[in-house]
Nucleic acid binder design. Structure first.
Ligand SMILES: [Mn+2]
Ligand SMILES: [Mn+2]
Ligand SMILES: [Zn+2]
Ligand SMILES: [Zn+2]
Lengths: 130, 130
DNA sequence: TTTGTTAATGCACCTAAGTTGCATTATATT
DNA sequence: AATATAATGCAACTTAGGTGCATTAACAAA
């Protein structure tokens, strides 16, 4: 590859995420763009946007790949190393603006960490009290 | 299903884990038992042993399923809710005997968590200083 | 505006983890 | 030994994700 080009697909993908802190599964994105963007293109556009520091991804409980917007990352360094939350009731997944300190582990050098929390999201909690 | 029976496969599987805190991928287990136990049986035996609280599993960075021995769990309650470690160099994965407190998250009810750490394991650290 | 270069895309096909249905075999009970 | 059924093997399936290659679209140069 040489110089990156602006394309409809890339813009469309970024618009889809907007400024939301909610994550989307790649599977969902593929469905969402059916007829408009090929499955392969979805994967390639996501890979590109991750490289560019505009999106980041994590693996959910189910093993599926989830993608979300980056806030303040640059191409050479993903700085938003935050935990993620997955709702046991409605299944949504979102980024948490929360700092978690990585503990010391004897005889190990820890370089990074994945934190995944499970429970009920705001919307699901509210729907109980109606 | 009715009353569980003792079988060679179940014993063999438990022996394989021994008392180690190292986890094994299901993929590895399938390879390991090639010719002795069918892939399907591996998956079913693992499912059974998880139900019985003798093994537990987690999803690795790669999305693969890892399995490890439980210490002090019973059928109705998996109590060993601990973090896991994956070595970036040699690829091994292991259970960490480490208590991590689950933080409060505004407008969310957190019920459980997955912690996955990445870095260098003891063996890999030592091999550098040789 | 037209032309040339090549990045981006679509499409068909592939890979591999994990699952399912069903016939056969092994274990436990009488 | 005869019976009941849990466990297993096997083949076929499902699905997330990836690859190779021909075609198309973006962009710069003429
Ligand atoms: Mn995030
Ligand atoms: Mn463990
Ligand atoms: Zn919810
Ligand atoms: Zn290691």
């Amino acid at each position: 590859m040489g110089v990156k080009r602006k394309t409809k697909s890339v813009e469309l993908m970024l618009e889809t995420f907007g400024q939301s802190k909610n994550a989307l599964t790649v599977v969902d994105l593929v469905k969402r763009f059916e007829g408009k963007m090929n499955k392969t293109t979805v994967y390639r556009v996501l890979e590109r946007l991750e490289d560019e520091g505009k999106l980041h991804s994590f693996t959910g409980k189910d093993g599926l790949k989830w993608v979300a917007k980056c806030h303040g990352c640059i191409s050479s360094n993903h700085t938003d190393d935050h935990p993620h939350f997955q709702c046991n009731d409605c299944g949504i997944s979102q980024c948490l603006s929360l700092d978690i300190s990585i503990p010391k582990v004897a005889n190990h050098k820890i370089e990074s960490a994945n934190f995944l929390f499970f429970g009920q999201c705001e919307q699901c909690l509210n729907s109980y009290s109606e």
